[in-house]
């Protein structure tokens, strides 16, 4: 791996370890350091796997206060998850084949908490382009917390997923009632194809007599045209004030003149975050 990644990796590793230090006792830190030096001595895959799996037995699962490190929001983490993330950064990156094979091996036998730690750490793994298929596979999971580790506060998918996989991620988040506003890069990766699919989905929901997540209109807003505009008008006339706000915000983000005209008198104190807060 290139020198830039190497420097960056060491910096984040140090940062993570300092957070671990603030949230653990001497015994835990000694154990982690011991594992690290044993790994450096032997460079054995079994050692790397064994430690990764055993981490919660030694660290416990205290909740870590929310904190931000570059590119990364540590939110609702437990100590074992943070320690596993740190441990992943101790894996040597000299050989690409060996590195990828070792990480894939972890995914292959991971329990739920291990999957959460692994998918949450995607942005920190070396050779980021190698994890696209793995991430797409993760999005097929039916386990809510695993999906959340991929979807929420995770910069990897927006940075590396191809459009079809990205669209699956967003659709699945909406299908499974995830707080979509916490998806990193949501607006940046908005695209017409996704907007069209979500509009079809809204029609299905209406046909079944069900409601539509108001945040869905955030992804349709920038692509409003004469075809989709009637849908927005319908939502804008909703009895539900959250839906009306969502329609207003969607129009405000569009380039379609009639949509802008429709909401020109609305006061701009609305935000998608406030919509999200009201439906939570």
């Amino acid at each position: 791996m290139d020198a830039l990644y190497h420097d960056e990796k060491n910096k984040i590793s140090t940062l993570l370890y300092s957070i671990i230090q603030h949230n653990s006792n001497q015994q835990v830190q000694e154990w982690l350091q011991q594992q690290k030096s044993k790994l450096e001595e032997t460079n054995a895959t079994q050692r790397f796997y064994g430690t990764f799996t055993a981490i919660p037995r030694f660290t416990g699962k205290n909740i870590i206060p929310d904190t931000t490190i570059p590119e990364f929001f540590i939110h609702g983490y437990t100590l074992d998850r943070l320690a596993r993330m740190w441990w992943l950064l101790q894996l040597p990156t000299e050989s690409k084949d060996q590195y990828v094979q070792t990480i894939e091996g972890l995914f292959g036998a991971a329990d739920m908490n291990e999957q959460i730690a692994l998918y949450g750490a995607l942005p920190l793994l070396a050779w980021p382009e190698e994890w696209r298929l793995r991430t797409a596979e993760g999005i097929r999971s039916n386990i809510g917390p695993v999906l959340e580790a991929i979807m929420l506060h995770n910069p990897y998918p927006a940075a590396y997923l191809e459009e079809p996989a990205w669209n699956q991620l967003v659709m699945k988040a909406i299908f499974t009632d995830k707080p979509v506003h916490l998806i990193t890069g949501l607006d940046k990766r908005a695209n017409r194809k996704l907007a069209d699919t979500l509009r079809d989905y809204a029609h299905e929901r209406w046909a079944a007599g069900r409601t539509v997540n108001p945040l869905l209109w955030r992804l349709i807003g920038p692509f409003i045209d004469e075809v989709s505009f009637p849908d927005i008008v319908r939502v804008w006339h909703s009895e539900n004030s959250v839906e009306r706000d969502a329609a207003t915000l969607a129009c405000a983000s569009s380039t379609y003149a009639p949509a802008l005209e429709l909401v020109k008198e609305e006061i701009s104190t609305l935000s998608w975050d406030s919509v999200a807060a009201r439906i939570a």
Binding site: G108, A109, M112, Q115, I143, G144, P145
Partner: peptide
């Protein structure tokens, strides 16, 4: 077998 063990610690637990 691997998938079965995986499901016991993963999906079934969830």
């Amino acid at each position: 077998f691997r998938d079965y063990f995986n499901s016991l610690i993963g999906w079934e637990r969830f």
